[in-house]
Write a protein that binds this DNA or RNA. Structure first.
Lengths: 124, 124
DNA sequence: CTCGATGCAAAAGATTTGCACCCGA
DNA sequence: TCGGGTGCAAATCTTTTGCATCGAG
């Protein structure tokens, strides 16, 4: 994989922000339109294939984060879109289900939705 | 909520198929273009708001299924898109996390991805 | 030098919306 | 009757793709 200045810029953004980022969010964090959106999408796909980053889909939008070879799960506020990282307690369950159905499980998603402490008064 | 013939048609389709359905899939199951796609989308949203159906998002597409007041989880084959229903073992965990972060959790997603027994030879 | 990477514009796929007309309660 | 529901077309949002050009190895 070639290390172009575009790819380095995107990687730097991932290093600066510890939160999951969408293509659009990466675009906004760049000095005005430094990169083309297609380049960002293509780079994200490349990074994902190379296992440099991981992906989660939230409401039709993909979010990516640097792959530290753990996977991540989030609890998301439906009002302010805050994402709180939560632990994964799925591995044992995953093994059981995979064995029962002769499935080869590659990965999984788990996301909790609701309202955070600050948004609960507004939401009710 | 008014019970129009369009809404009855969509409800009938949900009753006939026990699997999650997308707007497009509902369209295809109707006698040629009986309904407008927008109507289907609007109806699905209405049914969802009224809690008649539940929703899951898989690869940027929403799937809906009749709400039996249980929620559903699936293990999905990345090759043939077969969806196998699996049990939920998340409630206790959900309570712990919600309490720890003062979150009010409304619902959650959990999906396992991989390759089913038939597709494993092709996928490797 | 060569082939993969990029920029731009256009397309694709899912979903939403504006608006005039229709019909169920 | 009257306000919500529908059809149609156009718009929106996210992501993908074709193609000519660029530049890293």
């Amino acid at each position: 994989m070639r290390m172009t200045k575009q790819r380095i810029q995107i990687l730097d953004i991932f290093k600066s922000y510890a939160k999951p980022l969408s293509a659009e969010m990466i675009m906004e964090k760049l000095p005005d339109d430094a990169l083309n959106l297609s380049t960002i999408y293509r780079t994200l796909e490349t990074f994902y294939d190379e296992e440099l980053i991981s992906k989660s889909t939230i409401e039709h939008t993909n979010y990516y984060y640097l792959n530290d070879h753990k996977h991540h799960h989030y609890m998301i506020c439906l009002s302010c879109h805050k994402m709180i990282e939560i632990d994964c307690h799925l591995h044992e369950f995953e093994e059981q289900v995979a064995k029962a159905h002769q499935f080869k499980v590659t990965h999984h998603d788990m996301t909790l939705y609701g309202y955070c402490h600050e948004c609960q008064p507004k939401a009710s």
